[in-house]
């Protein structure tokens, strides 16, 4: 074996493999709705925390079951813990949902782009969340409330199917009590116990107390809800270029290699999930793209 005489390129130090999940400890697990929980994770001893930008996601791994892309729902100012809100929808999310305190969940990430908070500086901000669209927006809300003076009015519209499907229920009451934030909730249908709004999030848009030309909007929820919300915002005068959406596709690798999440030229996992709406609108309007 004389291969050493051949001047092959020297081994370059590689970064950590992107494929290795790091086992994080489940510190807390709280029930949000019948099928949704929130877990709080901490890194193993000696492993640094994972700073993240609001809007990013992690690949969470349930040992022996697999991985799922889950947005980060915690406070970016407290990166020593990772907070994820998970709806039990398939085998992986079901296993993750069942992760009890003391057990272990693997983490790869954070991945993707974040909400462009810098572009919202000095402007009114509208957050519109549908269903499980609130968790990916919550880090942005934490961040804005911490630096409240950087922003004009902050309006949040949160829509869910029924009152029972609202996540972060207690926290929403706190937010609704704040004078420097208007947080509206609306549901598709409700019983008499609900005194809040019933109707779509789009119906709340005309009433937003904003200066439309100086407003940035972040939307997260079902694609069709974001599409109609963007229309309603545009009708109110919010410039197209100031509307951002968080998209969901089949994210498997997180680094733009597996190919599953492509939307036109974009890898949603790497170039998104947050996009400027005017940049992706043309792709969203093509059937089965």
């Amino acid at each position: 074996m004389a291969a050493s005489s051949i001047p092959l390129p020297a081994s370059e130090p590689l970064g950590a493999s992107p494929w290795i999940p790091v086992p994080f400890r489940v510190e807390e697990r709280a029930s949000e709705t019948a099928d949704t929980i929130t877990i709080t994770l901490t890194p193993p001893k000696g492993i640094p925390s994972r700073p993240f930008r609001p809007g990013q996601f992690n690949m969470l791994y349930a040992f022996g079951v697999g991985e799922a892309a889950i947005s980060i729902a915690g406070d970016p100012d407290r990166p020593e813990t990772l907070v994820h809100t998970i709806r039990s929808a398939g085998p992986v999310s079901a296993a993750l949902s069942g992760a009890a305190p003391g057990s272990t969940v693997g983490v790869r990430g954070p991945y993707g782009t974040g909400w462009p908070l810098a572009s919202a500086s000095g402007k009114d901000v509208v957050l519109v969340a549908g269903g499980l669209g609130l968790p990916p927006l919550r880090p942005a809300l934490y961040e804005m409330l911490r630096h409240r003076d950087r922003y004009g009015r902050i309006e949040v519209i949160y829509g869910a199917r029924t009152p029972k499907d609202l996540v972060y229920y207690r926290q929403i009451q706190e937010w609704r009590g704040r004078s420097d934030l208007r947080f509206q909730t609306t549901v598709d249908a409700a019983g008499r116990e609900w005194y809040g709004d019933v109707g779509l999030v789009t119906a709340r848009v005309p009433d937003l107390r904003i200066d439309p030309s100086h407003t940035v909007a972040f939307l997260c929820g079902p694609e069709i809800m974001m599409k109609f919300t963007a229309q309603a915002l545009a009708a109110k005068g919010v410039p197209d270029g100031s509307i951002y959406v968080s998209l969901e596709r089949n994210m498997k690798c997180g680094v733009g290699l597996c190919g599953h999440c492509q939307l036109g030229p974009d890898f949603v996992c790497r170039d998104g999930p947050v996009f400027r709406y005017q940049d992706v609108r043309r792709f969203l309007s093509v059937r089965e793209l």
């Binding site: 549908g130 779509l200 119906a203 069709i224 109609f228």
Partner: peptide, 17 residues
């Protein structure tokens, strides 16, 4: 028209998925 649009969207039960 707006009520009709909203009704259609509600029919899709988007959040339920």
């Amino acid at each position: 028209a707006q009520r009709l649009d909203h009704t259609r969207l509600q029919l899709m039960d988007l959040h339920g998925r």
